[in-house]
Design a protein around this nucleic acid. Structure first.
Lengths: 335, 335
DNA sequence: AGTTTATATCTAACCGGTTACATATTAATA
DNA sequence: TATTAATATGTAACCGGTTAGATATAAACT
């Protein structure tokens, strides 16, 4: 593999000149530039990012830490982050914590050693303490879909509580009288907020019952099991607000396997608007959060921190949107 | 950020000794070792992988190049590769080409500059020529789910043709008389092989009609559109073999939207056995390919190349398995 | 003509590790 | 006791870039 010194020798100039040509900075004579360019081509020279990082004190690499790459929500984030990052000349190391705190800690250690320029966190297992440590070591951090009240971190999320309220209100509008909630892990901020939104609206309508909240771990399987549990306890349930689309899909599947149909017997609404929700049958009503937009802005703010522009480390909540689809349709005979 | 020299100073030893302690090689006195360890802790020292890579000529990083991270098939591969890689102390840069040849070429350039130790390719846009170039530059390569006959590359795939035959035979066994095929992009090896498997079995049963093959681009949308096209041309179709599960799901959706039901009116079988296929309603019959196992072995062979163990650069095809589910069920009244 | 400014290039230190080689001490063997 | 081997540690070159500072020439300005 050719080095910058090989190039400089072949072109008959110093390494500094070669460096200037490569980075298009400083003065370089047109003729000199061409002979350097020719030497580069002749040797098939590719500058080593490793050496460049060591000398330049930046890696042009960020990390994206996710909970579970098998959950379609995260590939959507990953896709957005990566697309935007590459536009700015950054590449992304994807770290899948698999919802495992130890694996996550191991990753964080590796990332520090790799001297990545910043880290984007979309993981439910991470603790505020770990984020604080990263920041103390000078590593820019942005957090997606979480909130750490009382900590100086930039976090982006959607209006979870409001969205949940919209979802439950929609079920009520569609005629539901007894509405269950399949929640995410309640130690996760977004899941908690959504549960609160559910509580608020059911309370206001005098249909709140604590037992109607069952956790479903944000997964299809969890949603499936949660629905069965819910239905066993309350066979007269007629609406379900699932804390995310995956659990909504799991719930619909469980109903189907129990010979109950959506929306005929029970109406179901999810949250997120992952791609799959409008492909599923029946199409899943949901609360859309602007995943691409949020991710894009998250990256934007991460870059600002990396470039030492000072920004306020606070949290932003994005608007959500109700997307009524088949799974909450009011059938004619009900009307 | 503390450096190895800071540590050596604090511990009162040379950098070589510190290096020996960190890497657990060479002779180090127990007492010395402890004082070094203490210094490391006191300074919160984390060795720089950058410097280490530059000096040691390896990055402990591999790249995974995928076609489309939004297609669940690829997160499953990604999950497997990443899980196995981290066990061996390697991290993975995930590169999503988005089915865009230019973006892919750009990534390959970046990866060369990053001096990654090896590259795992699961992308449909890559050309044999590019792989050859990578190899000539000494970069170990393993390819998943493709084949490049006549090229010396290690490729892992499943028995695509055989699986396709099994799928079509299964449809026939379930009573289908007119079977369509929604294919992947026919310039992709796996898609072509599956189409050939389809042709072989339909031919043998004298039900082959060229017009019954329609391309669906390996996506849900593509499958949806392909089915509509197929059905418009051949309204008497009673079975569909989709070249992957996503297209199978798209096809079922299209049928549903046309008031046709699966398996009642038409039976559908997919290929891959992605997680979603058994959650979908109806559950999608499919040909299971051992994604985790294949990916794991792919990584295994990549590591062998990285470690300069010589292996035969050839292609391996994994066994597939028919998973009959609801979408191809023979209903009682049909029997 | 003398001074300033813009252009062009080079030398060498530096980034933070690894490692070959030299050196010193102690233990084992002849 | 002399010699060899094992243990322990240090020095300094090297990996391949970047960049500050030195130097030199040509053009522009007093």
């Amino acid at each position: 593999m050719a080095t910058i010194r090989d190039v400089s020798k072949l072109a008959g100039v110093s390494v500094a000149t070669v460096s200037r040509v490569i980075n298009k900075n400083g003065y370089v004579n047109e003729t000199t530039k061409n002979s350097v360019l020719n030497a580069i081509k002749a040797l098939n020279y590719k500058p080593s990012s490793i050496a460049r990082s060591l000398a330049g004190m930046k890696t042009s690499t960020i990390a994206l830490l996710v909970s579970d790459i098998l959950n379609p929500f995260f590939p959507e984030i990953s896709h957005a982050i990566e697309s935007e990052a590459i536009k700015q000349g950054y590449s992304v190391i994807l770290c899948n914590s698999d919802n495992n705190a130890e694996k996550e800690a191991e990753y964080i250690k590796i990332l520090k050693e790799k001297r990545i320029d910043g880290i984007m966190i979309a993981s439910y297992t991470i603790q505020a303490e770990q984020i604080k440590k990263l920041q103390e070591e000078g590593i820019p951090v942005v957090v997606l879909d979480r909130e750490f009240p009382g900590h100086n971190v930039l976090t982006l999320m959607c209006k979870n509580r409001e969205g949940a309220s919209m979802a439950v209100q929609h079920l009520i509008d569609q005629g539901c009288k007894k509405i269950g909630h399949i929640s995410g892990p309640l130690d996760v901020y977004a899941a908690r907020e959504r549960a609160i939104g559910y509580e608020e609206v059911t309370n206001k309508n005098n249909i709140y019952t604590p037992g109607l909240i069952v956790p479903g771990g944000f997964s299809i399987d969890g949603g499936y099991r949660a629905l069965l549990e819910l239905y066993a306890k309350y066979p007269d349930i007629d609406g379900v607000f699932a804390g995310n689309d995956l659990m909504g899909i799991g719930a619909i599947k469980a109903l189907y396997d129990s010979n109950l149909y959506v929306p005929k017997n029970i109406k179901v609404i999810g949250f997120d608007d992952i791609d799959l929700s409008k492909t599923f049958m029946p199409e899943l009503s949901t609360i859309k959060q602007p995943i691409y937009e949020m991710s894009k802005m998250a990256l934007h703010y991460l870059m600002k921190q990396i470039n030492n522009e000072d920004i306020v480390l606070t949290s932003y909540a994005y608007e959500v949107e109700l997307l009524p689809r088949e799974s909450t349709k009011k059938l004619e005979k009900e009307a």
